[in-house]
Amino acid sequence: MPGIGIDVGSTYTKYCIAEDEKILKLFAEKTPLRQRDYFERKLEAFKEEYPGAMIFSCGYGKSNVSGIKSVNELTALAAGFYKLTGESGTILDIGGQDTKIITEENGRLKDFFINDKCAAGSGMFLTNTLELTGVSFEDIDLKEAYDSELRLSSTCAVFAQSEIVMMIADNRTEEEIINAVIRQILIKAKPLLEKTGEKSIYLSGGLSLIPGIAPFAEKILKVKCKIPENGIYLSAIGCAFMER
């Protein structure tokens, strides 16, 4: 029996199609504004292509995927990570809305930490910065990131915004600014990470797609950082293999 997992994120919705304990397909689409209509059509298409499939959803927009079971995103993340890697571990997930850290043991959620309501600690901060600087997400590359001395001093995204505007006026490069923002997002995650006491973690979520993010994050977080393959699909995978 096929299993389909849908992780409805603020920016992208991730899908996993699975059957017989194997992942058949992984893909992502931009989460539209009119979510209910979109997911209605999506589910109809899935029911046609994969009759009898068990479908689970998770994520902030999961209530818009009506008529199917939903799962907690963190539970799905734990299950998906274990499915993919067979390992127990700690995962730092920086998404569009927030930053989460989970510890997972044999596929079960063991503990979790979520940052307070603060845009400076989430992907939204980066999204807004990309808009200001006119850089697209796909163009970010931290592989050659040098240790620029440029730092954001504001702890709040709202104040940091004005700092960024001044940096642009001061002719700082887009690269320097974006590096400073990503650094700040990771710094915000540090106190949560320190609560786990872990020395080695995995990165997932949108930020994990950035080339060079692992060594960059290691320098800031002072822990070993690895990126699981298909890191952005972990929750969707967890949903697809959710126990019936």
């Binding site: 001093s153 504001s154 104040f159 001044m166």
Partner: peptide, 8 residues
């Protein structure tokens, strides 16, 4: 000390 934005 991290609370202060010196430029501001």
């Amino acid at each position: 000390r991290e609370y202060l934005n010196l430029e501001k």
